[in-house]
Structures are given as structure tokens and as C-alpha cells.
Design a protein around this nucleic acid. Structure first.
Length: 272
DNA sequence: CACTATGTTTAGCG
DNA sequence: CCGCTAAACATAGT
């Protein structure tokens, strides 16, 4: 479920394993996830070391000693892993980087919507992919300037990576809940204080998620995400998870906004 | 079998 | 250009 907090967690994992290490081989189990052709990639990687990692929105970058970067996008089901011997390769490993010390770092992606490509700079990638400022960096003023005059619904705008990069479906629902804003509000009807609340909520939700390494079951009880029904570790035999964390008698409602599954508390987030 | 899914891109329509 | 919708991608899990 790679939204910004997952990708940041992956980046930290890759930073620990890869920075300072030399890549000795590129193993391609399924070229479908390659957006740069295999030979070009192999030439750029073999014998080169990783000098740093970066993240922008949902994208992770491995900087190489050549100055080029390997850009990783995880699609809907991408993940990372590490193993040493082939029988231990995680299921759905599509590509693996073999390191000089024998460790292998896996790009795992069951649905194969993820992509790996070689890029010359983060700035160039950001421009090509039309990515706005990272959701952790955007200010309340920038957010209001970008959205305050738009007539579209606030939820699809928050999902738009060209406005701010990193927010995905579940996080936008959580942000809107924490800010007490209904997802179908027109952006140009939000008040100054609602934009402030949205910005504060973006920071709260992303920083909380990163702190818990994007493990949703460990999020605070005040978070709406526990109402999504994915939480298999919730107290068994109860259906508490369908109620609002604030109004414990009010059921969270599911609908579709901009063709995305959307959860709201009708009392916290009054419909427009 | 039917249905849903975290992301992105593109085509089409008004 | 704006806004919105549907579809496509490829596959797993319930």
C-alpha cells in the first residue's frame, strides 16, 4: 500500500542496506516492471555503488556514484525485501540488486503496476511526471494558493500528485477526517481555518504513519483508518471498527468519490 | 464465481 | 484549458 509513509519506510530500509554498497549484478525476473530497458539498466548499475537515497511523494530514488539515479515507483502493491539465497527470494520478487557482499535487495510487486527506471535528476523526474511539492514540505499557504480557487471536490484534488505529491486514497480520507472536512466539499468553499486544519492534518497523519513505519494497526485509536475493515488485528468478535472514533454511536459511511472508495463520519464531516 | 483493491495514465465527452 | 468519468493496466485475496 505504498503511499508516502510506506515509501519513506522503504527508503530508510534501502538506505540502511544499500548506501556505500556496490551492485555486482541486476537480476530481472520480470521485465514488465522495467521502464528503462534491461541492458541500459545493467550498464548503469553493474560495478556502481549507491551513494544516497531520496524520496519525493511516493517515489524513491537510489543515487549512484555515476550521478544517475534509479527511480522506484511502487504502484499499488510494491514492496522491498532482502535475501541471500535464491530459495529465500520473497514471493513476487520482480527485480533484485545483487550486492558485492552477497546480499540481494528485492523489488517485490505482485500486481506489477510498479516501475523502475533510470533518471538523470530528481528535478527532471519531478518535471516529467508533473509532481508537485512533497506532501511533507508543502505549506498551508501553498496548499490554499493551489486549491482555494478550484471548483473541484477537495478529495480528488488532494489525490492529485501535481498539486502535492505523496497523498493516497487512505491518507486523504484520514486527513479529511482529522481536519473535519467532507471529501465532497468544493475546494473553493473551504475557509482559511479549514485550509489550516488540512495542512495540520497532513502533517499529523504522515508523521504518525511514518513513526509507526506505516503499520496501520498501530495507529492511534483516534484515526478513522481503523474503520476501513482491513484491520484484521482488531479485537476479534467486535464490530467497533465500523464506528467513528469520536462519535462512538455513529457509523462510518462508505461511498465513492472520484471513483475511489471513501469513508467519512457524517457527524464529524457534514456533507456540503 | 463475483467482487474489490492502496496508483497512474489516457481517452473521451461536455 | 477545465472538470469529470470510465477504462485500462495485472493480479491476489476474500
Amino acid at each position: 500500500m505504498p503511499e508516502l509513509p510506506e515509501v519513506e519506510t522503504y527508503r530508510r530500509f534501502l538506505d540502511d542496506l544499500l548506501v556505500g554498497q556496490t551492485i555486482v549484478a541486476l537480476e530481472v525476473k520480470d521485465a514488465h516492471v522495467l521502464a528503462t530497458d534491461e541492458d541500459t539498466l545493467r550498464n548503469a548499475l553493474n560495478g556502481h555503488s549507491v551513494t544516497a537515497t531520496h524520496r519525493l511523494g511516493k517515489n524513491c530514488f537510489l543515487k549512484l556514484d555515476s550521478g544517475q539515479l534509479l527511480a522506484l515507483h511502487f504502484g499499488m502493491t510494491g514492496d522491498v525485501g532482502a535475501y541471500r539465497d535464491e530459495p529465500d527470494a520473497p514471493r513476487f520478487t520482480r527485480v533484485a540488486l545483487h550486492l558485492a557482499d552477497g546480499l540481494r535487495v528485492a523489488f517485490i510487486d505482485p500486481r506489477k503496476f510498479g516501475r523502475i527506471r533510470l533518471v538523470d535528476s530528481v528535478a527532471r523526474y519531478q518535471k516529467d511526471k508533473k509532481l508537485g511539492p512533497d506532501a511533507l514540505d508543502i505549506t498551508a499557504q501553498q496548499l490554499q494558493a493551489a486549491l482555494g480557487h478550484r471548483k473541484s471536490l477537495i478529495k480528488p484534488l488532494l489525490l492529485d500528485q501535481s498539486i502535492t505529491a505523496g497523498l493516497g486514497n487512505w491518507i486523504v480520507d484520514e486527513v479529511l477526517f482529522q481536519a473535519r472536512v467532507h471529501p465532497e466539499r468544493r475546494a473553493d468553499t473551504l475557509t482559511d481555518s479549514e485550509f489550516e486544519a488540512l495542512h495540520t492534518a497532513v502533517q499529523l497523519v504522515l508523521n504518525t504513519a511514518i513513526r509507526h513505519e506505516a503499520t496501520y494497526s498501530r495507529f492511534p485509536a483516534s484515526f478513522l483508518i481503523h474503520a476501513r475493515g482491513w484491520d484484521t488485528s482488531a479485537t476479534p468478535g467486535t464490530d467497533n471498527h465500523i464506528f467513528c472514533p469520536v462519535h462512538t454511536k455513529t457509523k462510518v459511511e462508505k461511498s465513492y468519490v472520484g471513483a475511489r472508495a471513501t469513508y467519512v463520519c457524517p457527524r464529524c464531516q457534514p456533507a456540503p
